[in-house]
Write a protein that binds this DNA or RNA. Structure first.
Lengths: 263, 263
DNA sequence: CGCGCTGTTGAAACTTGTCAAAGTTTGTGG
DNA sequence: CCACAAACTTTGACAAGTTTCAACAGCGCG
């Protein structure tokens, strides 16, 4: 099963499209959810193998998005959801006065576009942070299929609810944590998500700039940079530009919950 | 139709249950969504009259929640959604270390409990800020009915998506606004929601304390109090404890978007 | 190879938080 | 219905945390 020396079911997170034979093979094999090694993390979630195969009909098109390009923009008509297959995205909202706020970072297996259902127009921009690839799920198809297919409907509701819960967590972070706690929380969250995908939880490369991290965490980029430096000084992290290695996971966790250790 | 001198289709926002004959009559008449004057704002949303009548079967029980009591708590098993019928709620998340964060305020016509779908346990507390009343919608019934009833499914998805979009807005507020902007945004949002319900948008009574406002806005209660005082000094508001009157709507709006008027 | 974007660091300014005290309102029980 | 206690609000003075401004270093892309 495992230990063959290959990456097993881990998807390389490096930019796609370098045109290797192996890449071409993978693309061909994994057109279907049932063959996708992300299906545990993605929409198929708790569905049975048989049920997942029904999903395959939904995922019509694949789409590549180059680094810096938008998958969709606020104001665009909504007609599909997107599952990140490869790469890394950010979503952001822009206020009338031009300020913008990063509202999330999405990695393989995560869904984009849920914001569009409310008004049938997107309310955020989804921008690729590296060359990426998504599965397109036409929303009308999803609605139709989940009509006749109870577990899919249930699963979809869970995905939306999970997003609501995630945002509650971000509100807690933004509303009542200090800079170091915010960054530590963010790094621990990233580490967990990498781990779920079969990557090292201790060592990873950030796809976003300090400014994007700062926007997400409600901080200025200088503050983010200073916090990284402080964590490095204290031996919690080894930071080299965008690559981060967690040296002391326990201490990093302690940064988060240090305010009222007793209560 | 209107202009009879009564409140028409406006629901009095004062505490319920004083046992007047009129109150008893209303309770009896409005057990059904089709007879509820909130149906424009609530789940029935864009549904036709005929469609709404199908909803009635869903709304089995009504439930009263006294001021200060919880409709549900984080960790409780999830089995129903609740539509606020009368009164006012807050939702809050609590961190392991005891800190808590208000994640929303819900008024009549708004839904509570969407957080519970993800894990089948609630992840927030929902607490009544005044004596309140909710319609209980069993989630299993909702799933079943929306299975055979497309517009309901669609409407429910919209409600969830709307909540995601709302939370994006709160992230913007918490992540990149200053104290005065946050409070102004909050007041304008309240004003709009009161207006949609047929109340004055210029004059209303806050159901929550300064501390709860502060928690929602990521500020300390003293900061909230100072901002109120400053708005009053500048002639934007008349503030008397919990009652607020907006004196200069345009200036209040200007507070929000004053950072980069040009760009 | 150089220009621009990204990241780091320092010092000063500013916003918000903390602590403290006093006033006000609300709720409860006699 | 009044009195008292608890909860809430306001305000001031001061402290702390974060932002702002500025300068410079490093890396990557053209």
């Amino acid at each position: 099963m495992s230990g063959t020396g290959t990456h097993g079911n881990a998807i390389p997170i490096t930019p796609v499209g370098r045109g290797t034979a192996k890449g071409a093979l993978r693309t061909q094999l994994q057109t279907a959810c049932s063959a996708c090694n992300l299906h545990e993390l993605c929409m198929p979630g708790g569905l049975s193998a048989e049920e997942v195969s029904k999903l395959d009909s939904l995922v019509a098109a694949r789409r590549r998005v180059k680094k810096g390009e938008a998958l969709f923009r606020a104001g665009d008509a909504f007609d599909a959801l997107y599952a990140v297959r490869l790469g890394f995205f950010k979503t952001r909202v822009t206020a009338e006065d031009g300020r913008d706020q990063v509202t999330g970072f999405q990695m393989p297996g995560e869904l984009l576009g849920l914001d569009g259902i409310a008004t049938e127009r997107h309310s955020v921009d989804a921008v690729a942070l590296e060359d990426s690839e998504v599965c397109t799920i036409a929303y009308s198809d999803l609605e139709r299929l989940s009509q006749e297919f109870v577990p899919l409907q249930h699963q979809f509701h869970k995905v939306m609810s999970r997003e609501i819960v995630r945002e509650n967590g971000v509100m807690m972070l933004l509303g009542s944590m200090r800079a170091e706690e915010r960054l530590a929380t963010f790094l621990l969250n990233l580490a967990n998500r990498f781990r779920s995908r079969g990557y090292s939880q201790a060592e990873f490369v950030l796809r976003m700039t300090r400014e994007e991290i700062g926007s997400y965490l409600g901080l200025k980029l200088e503050t983010v940079s200073r916090c990284f430096s402080r964590f490095a000084d204290e031996g919690l992290l080894a930071v080299n530009n965008k690559s981060v290695r967690i040296l002391d996971l326990d201490k990093l966790k302690a940064v988060v919950g240090d305010c009222r250790p007793g209560i």
